[in-house]
Amino acid sequence: KFGRVHERAEGPAKILAIGTATPFHWVDQSSYPDYYFRVTNSDHLVDLKEKFRRICNRTMISKRHMFLTEEILQKNPNLCSHNEPSFDVRQDILVSEIPKLGKEAVLMAIDEWAQPKSKITHLVFCTRSGVDMPGADYQLIKLLGLSPSVQRVMMYQQGCFAGGTMLRLAKDLAENNKGARVLVVCAESSAIGFRGPSEDHPDNLIAQALFGDGAAALIIGSDPKMGLERPIFEIVTTAQTFVPNGDCHLALHLREMGLTFHCTKDVPPTIAKNVESCLIKAFEPLGISDWNSIFWILHPGGNAIVDQVESTLGLEPNKLQATRNILREYGNLSSACVLFILDEIRKKSGREGLKTSGDGLDLGVLLSFGPGLTIETVVLR
């Protein structure tokens, strides 16, 4: 008597548009150690500064975009301390800036989509910054002038794996609601975790050397309108798992001094060791076991992770080039990073006149991972 209210779509979910945005301000990685130790009044920690310089040199990052300028840091000195309470200051900045950054990426996506924004039916927003109620999803709806009846899902504090999570959720929403057009937004800022150095917490140096700011937005829907919408990728399958006891290797915690970062040297080999089982589960039903026969979007948690995944799986050097390019130009953008790589690989395919948006290949994989050593596996066509 009370059956399904919403009719299912006929076809699989497809990515119809991609937009990205970054803050205008950026830092050069080669000179960042001098800048970082100067603005945090830590130049007296000579040995720690040299250690940080070595870490920065190993990241293979060229530059990173950041909202925090020297002027902002001078006005808010607690942000430059390692342990002073600064959460309220971070909140005041990020509750406002995260939706604005997301808006810039959304406008780029809508411009490519070339359809009225009134056709957006759902919003899925993800960030690890600016936790608030009502959330960044609500603020973004107002900034864009979208209908208050847009169906919203707000996900805070997920971390680097969440780019894949957003695709998984959007696929379910698009395929189970005929005519749905799902706006996916990942907006991230390193301002939540920026803090001064400490000899007692070397993990913090890794975070300060890796993370950048950026937002990515996608429009996802099934059954694209012929002649009006141009699909870029099809989302074939999605899956999530985590490595048992992985939280002892990688975890982040909200504290009075901001978001703290805990990471062990076992993260790269542990991820590399567990990736292939995810690939087998995803691609065995499709008859694929040659990992060089697919295109790759791999989250660059750090250069060591990229190198070890490449080595463990025997990947050809060009397979992870898009990942390395984004890491070099932006650093680790947390949940937004794989979506930047997705954009990079389709643009490169277009520039080179390849037959598909995925490096000329039919199928590919998007792998994202993060806290708890959670792994998201997304098969794309």
Results as ranks from 00 to 15, higher is better:
T40S: 06
I15L: 01
L366C: 10
M257A: 14
L146F: 00
I345N: 04
S357K: 06
V378E: 15
V236K: 03
T59V: 14
I271Y: 11
D362Y: 03
R90S: 08
L48E: 10
H82R: 10
P269R: 12
F340W: 12
G372Q: 13
R381Y: 04
D111I: 04
A9F: 02
D88T: 13
K75A: 15
P317R: 12
G314P: 11
V124C: 09
A336H: 01
L250C: 09
F67L: 13
F261I: 10
L286A: 08
Y330I: 06
R328H: 07
L315Q: 06
K347D: 01
L79S: 11
V275F: 12
R324Q: 07
N303D: 09
I15M: 01
K14E: 04
V338N: 05
F283I: 06
A272S: 04
I98W: 03
I297L: 06
I345D: 00
F242A: 05
A9I: 02
E7N: 12
V27M: 00
I326T: 11
L140Q: 02
N76E: 10
A9P: 02
G19E: 04
S289K: 12
K100W: 05
L252F: 10
T241L: 08
A21R: 04
L48A: 01
E256R: 08
E310W: 04
K49T: 00
L144A: 04
H82L: 06
K1S: 06
N57W: 02
D343K: 04
R54I: 00
A136K: 06
L298W: 12
I15V: 03
F67I: 13
N76A: 12
I297E: 08
K265E: 14
R328T: 04
N57E: 13
V243L: 12
W291F: 00
S334Q: 13
E97V: 08
S277Y: 03
T238C: 12
P268L: 09
K142I: 01
R4Q: 13
L315T: 02
R381C: 01
H82Q: 00
K348Y: 00
R255D: 15
L342G: 10
L339Q: 11
S277T: 10
V275W: 06
M133E: 12
K273A: 09
I294E: 10
I72R: 09
W291M: 05
L366H: 13
L313E: 03
V46Q: 02
S86E: 12
A21L: 05
P12D: 07
N325C: 12
T59R: 02
F24C: 13
E256S: 07
L380V: 03
A21F: 04
T312E: 12
I280K: 07
G360H: 13
K281Y: 03
L252N: 15
D43A: 00
A13D: 03
D43G: 07
N332W: 00
N41S: 04
V243N: 14
I93F: 08
G364Q: 01
P23N: 14
E70G: 02
G301A: 13
N318Y: 12
D307S: 09
R328E: 08
A322G: 04
G350S: 06
I98K: 07
N274M: 14
Q115N: 08
L342D: 03
E50K: 11
D362R: 00
L228F: 01
F242V: 13
L339S: 07
D28Y: 03
R328K: 02
E256M: 10
L68A: 06
L354C: 09
H44G: 08
R381F: 04
I271C: 01
G331E: 12
I375G: 13
C126A: 07
R346M: 09
E70R: 07
N83V: 11
M257K: 15
H65S: 03
L79V: 07
P317I: 02
L313A: 08
M66F: 14
P269T: 08
E376T: 01
E344D: 07
Q74W: 08
N245W: 07
H25K: 07
P134E: 14
K281S: 06
P300D: 09
K100D: 07
P77G: 02
C337E: 14
H82D: 14
S81A: 10
L339I: 04
F283D: 08
N292L: 13
H122E: 03
I232D: 03
C126Y: 12
A114T: 10
P23S: 11
K319Q: 02
I232Q: 11
E352R: 15
L254I: 12
W291G: 04
L342Q: 13
D290F: 09
Q115H: 04
L373V: 08
T237Y: 09
H65N: 08
L48M: 01
K75D: 06
R38V: 04
R255I: 12
L361K: 14
T260M: 13
D137W: 02
R381S: 01
L315A: 07
Q74I: 02
H249S: 14
P77S: 10
D34V: 06
N83R: 08
F340Y: 10
N292M: 09
Q240S: 05
E316R: 05
Q74P: 03
T260L: 06
E276K: 11
A239N: 00
I141Y: 12
G353S: 11
L228S: 07
L79A: 00
P116W: 04
V131A: 15
E10F: 13
L45E: 05
M257I: 07
V243A: 11
N274L: 12
D290I: 01
Y330R: 03
Y330V: 07
I271E: 00
E10C: 08
C56A: 10
A322T: 07
I15S: 06
I18W: 02
G360E: 02
L363M: 08
V378F: 10
D266A: 10
I120E: 01
A272P: 09
G19S: 07
K142G: 06
A9W: 01
T22M: 07
A114R: 08
G19C: 05
T312W: 07
V267G: 09
D290W: 01
L68E: 08
E352L: 15
E70L: 00
D43W: 13
V306C: 15
S30C: 07
E71K: 14
I235R: 06
V379A: 15
A322L: 08
A105R: 07
T374R: 10
T260A: 14
C278D: 11
A251L: 08
V39I: 07
S349E: 08
E112G: 06
K49P: 04
S289P: 07
F242E: 13
R38I: 01
L327D: 04
R58G: 12
V378Y: 05
S277P: 04
C337L: 04
F87W: 14
P148L: 03
D307V: 01
I341P: 00
N83P: 10
S147I: 02
P244A: 11
T312H: 12
N292E: 00
D137L: 06
D247C: 05
T374D: 12
K355I: 04
F37W: 10
D307M: 13
L354I: 10
H253E: 10
T356H: 01
L339T: 10
G350V: 15
V379N: 14
K348E: 08
T22A: 09
L366Q: 10
D343C: 00
H122S: 05
S311D: 04
T69P: 07
T22R: 10
D343Q: 00
V95S: 13
A136H: 00
L73G: 10
L313S: 04
L298V: 13
F87M: 13
T312D: 14
L228D: 02
N292S: 09
L298E: 08
G287E: 07
